[in-house]
Design a protein around this nucleic acid. Structure first.
Lengths: 333, 333
DNA sequence: TTGAAAGCGATACCAC
DNA sequence: GTGGTATCGCTTTCAA
């Protein structure tokens, strides 16, 4: 690998001048520039990014720390940011962290290797030592979708809003026993939305209609028994923690002679690509408004390029009606 | 951020000694070491990885270039490798590249920033300029799942094997008109497996039973018309390009009064997490044997730690029978 | 066991 | 316009 000095020697100029050419400085005579560029091309020279950033303090790396339950959606957002930063000469680092300790370790590690950090975090507390230190140093970092309010700039996702709208929509469709099936993690915001949506529709949220189960498909499948055991008290609508859980439950329904949506309106969350292809197509709740990945890029780039400080934002969610829980007839589309 | 010299000054030793402590050198008196460590802890010192690698030539980064059609499976493999490398002090970079040009650009870029490159590549040719250069320099890189044979170390996935076994299994179940539904990209290996599996079962592969369609769910849904239009010539089994395509087709079947598996045995590919939760649960084909992500880590780590050269390997695929295409009754489990 | 000093590959201040 | 030289933060050769 040739260095800047090889180029300098070969083209009969100083390293300083090669550096000028490299950085597109105006103060280089055209002839000189051409000559240097020719040599660079001939030797297939590319400056060492590591050596460069030692001096400039800009590493040209954006880093992500994602947590154990990182979904495909998360990775798609990382992809969006990475694709936008690529042409700008930034590389993207990703680290997976399982617990809070691992997360802090990765924060320390990656903050030494990047110019900005994006944390898809499950941190429960409003603050953390590693982040306080970063904030103190003025190192740019942004949390995405923390489970609760945090003391740092963050992009929040308001799941409550989507559940609220979905519950209201079910009530408007004439459903009277609207149940909720959740796992433990991040249940509160879902319950709050469900509750509020029903109350606003003049229904009384019945705590007995909030069911708990395990994660994912299996969680949904396993919950059917508890939900439908007593035929007399069956719900006529069910909001699930996510699409996987709804799909698992759907697969268990034939055993109970329940038809969707006739006997039960079913709604998931996440709007996974396969949701429309279940039988019946699954209603879901999805992130609404501007794309979060796109917004992430904008924010990080503005921070890095113009020093624009991060601003906390909240992204809403909204129902996606499909056959498993059609929108009420009166709904304007 | 304190530097090694701050630590040296504060603890009354030279930078050389701090460096020794940092790198766990034996030749440091215990008392000195303790003193230095104490100062490092007090000042919250962490060595700059960039400066370090300028000298050592080891960047402690493993980089991935993934292509436009990177699936969730791909990212899960990246995750596996990243999780294993994390504790070893390696960071992971990921770049997405849409076409061959973008891919070459990212190869150039990331090879300057990493110690090894893993390429989930769609490159059609057996070789490429950027890779020839890397090979010449002795830079470690490994291709994963290229669509054809390449001139470099690669991990291949033999899809043909899975389709062959699935076709044979369908024949053994008494299906006589086994069709294939593929998109254009990577159709050949699927066709070859289908053909061979049928021939080995004493059936004659009928080219008219190879259907082409677009990608994904929509591709499957849109293909139903062409496949089932003529009631007299309907296939009684269908191997699809992947699970998404199979799900799309499944969703379109009610319009043709076709029941799965009674009238049609249906098989996908990829064994996506939701496949068991379709109605009926979808048979699929999945990567068999050792986990590819795990194997990637082993290979890259062996290369980086011990200089073990990359060896090309082939990973097989195998059917996963479920209700949409049950294994033949005689099959030993 | 410890330290002075050179060097990794770039940038940038200050002369000329 | 161009070049000498110090410098970024670390590792490492060579002496002591």
């Amino acid at each position: 690998m040739p260095t800047i000095h090889d180029i300098a020697r070969e083209s009969g100029v100083s390293a300083r001048t090669v550096s000028r050419v490299l950085n597109g400085s105006d103060a280089v005579e055209t002839g000189t520039r051409e000559r240097v560029l020719a040599v660079m091309a001939r030797l297939d020279y590319r400056p060492d990014p590591g050596a460069r950033s030692l001096k400039t303090k800009r590493r040209r790396v954006v880093a992500f720390v994602v947590n154990a339950v990182a979904s495909d959606t998360t990775m798609r957002r990382v992809e969006t940011v990475a694709r936008r930063f690529g042409p700008l000469g930034y590389a993207v680092m990703v680290a997976w962290a399982d617990g809070l300790d691992a997360e802090e370790r990765e924060i320390r590690e990656l903050s030494m290797r990047s110019d900005a950090l994006v944390l898809f975090s499950n941190r429960p507390g409003p603050r953390a030592a590693a982040l306080d230190r970063l904030a103190e140093e003025g190192f740019p970092f942004l949390l995405v979708d923390p489970p609760g309010k945090v003391a740092y700039p963050a992009f929040y996702i308001d799941r409550s809003a989507g559940y609220r709208a979905a519950a209201a929509s079910l009530a408007a469709s004439g459903r009277r026993r609207v149940a909720l099936l959740v796992e433990d993690f991040r249940a509160d915001e879902r319950i709050a939305g469900w509750k509020r949506g029903l109350e606003e529709s003049g229904l009384v949220p019945d705590p007995a209609l909030v069911f708990r189960t395990g994660k994912g498909f299996e969680g949904g499948r396993d919950a059917a028994e508890a939900i439908f055991a007593r035929a007399s008290e069956r719900p006529d609508a069910l909001l699930c923690h996510n699409d996987r859980m709804a799909a698992g439950l759907l697969a268990a329904l034939p055993g109970y002679d329940i038809r969707v949506p006739r006997d039960l309106a079913l709604v998931g969350f996440d709007d996974e690509p396969w949701a429309p292809f279940l039988d019946p197509p699954l209603s879901s709740i999805r992130q609404a408004g501007p794309d979060l990945g796109e917004a992430l890029f904008e924010a990080v780039n503005a921070r890095l390029a113009d020093g624009a400080p991060f601003e906390s934002r909240t992204f809403l969610t909204e129902p996606v009606p499909r056959a498993s829980a059609p929108a009420p007839a009166s709904a304007e589309q």
